[in-house]
């Protein structure tokens, strides 16, 4: 949700390694990385946060499917998984590559590469010779748990 932006962000992991150049710190966290901010909940094996003059510029997450869950403004939760997720808060952009899977009660998308603008909801996937797939649940039927692959 939009209100997540001004919530405190917590981050914990098994190890962390930051070089201390304050303004442009680059920290690498490995092992059960968990980042939460409001309804945003990110899990990964390895997270790399790059700061530019005090602002988080990029968050690189990789893992045996790094995952990211967030409640949308309409109350439904969106759950995304991919081998590699790059989150750029200033551009509000999320790029998922490697067997990505985006699920919500209304349906799911899957494929190899997706660029998703959290602000406008725009998403761009495929176009690289691989197939993209969207599954839309029937309007009245109860959403089956984790339907489809």
């Amino acid at each position: 949700k939009a209100s997540d932006r001004n919530q405190p962000m917590t981050l914990d992991s098994d190890q962390s390694d930051c070089n201390q150049a304050e303004a442009n710190a680059r920290c690498v966290f490995t092992g059960n990385v968990v980042i939460t901010q409001g309804t945003l909940d990110i899990r990964a094996d390895r997270a790399e946060i790059v700061q530019r003059n005090g602002e988080i510029d990029q968050v690189l997450l990789t893992g045996k499917q790094a995952s990211m869950k967030q409640q949308m403004d309409d109350g439904t939760t969106m759950n995304a998984r991919a081998d590699r997720i790059v989150f750029e808060p200033r551009k509000d952009l999320l790029t998922l590559t490697g067997n990505f899977q985006v699920e919500s009660p209304r349906g799911s998308n899957s494929g190899q590469k997706m660029v998703y603008n959290l602000g406008t909801g725009q998403m761009q996937s495929g176009g690289d010779g691989t197939r993209v797939r969207t599954v839309i649940q029937p309007r009245n039927a109860a959403p089956q748990p984790g339907s489809g692959n």
């Binding site: 725009q122 998403m123 993209v132 029937p138 309007r139 089956q144």
Partner: peptide
């Protein structure tokens, strides 16, 4: 039919989650 999921596949997808456009 109305109680069955709709599966859409394509080469490329754009637009938003609510209003996807699929090509190819």
């Amino acid at each position: 039919r109305e109680n069955q999921p709709t599966v859409i596949e394509g080469d490329e997808q754009s637009g938003t989650r609510a209003t996807p456009q699929i090509q190819g």
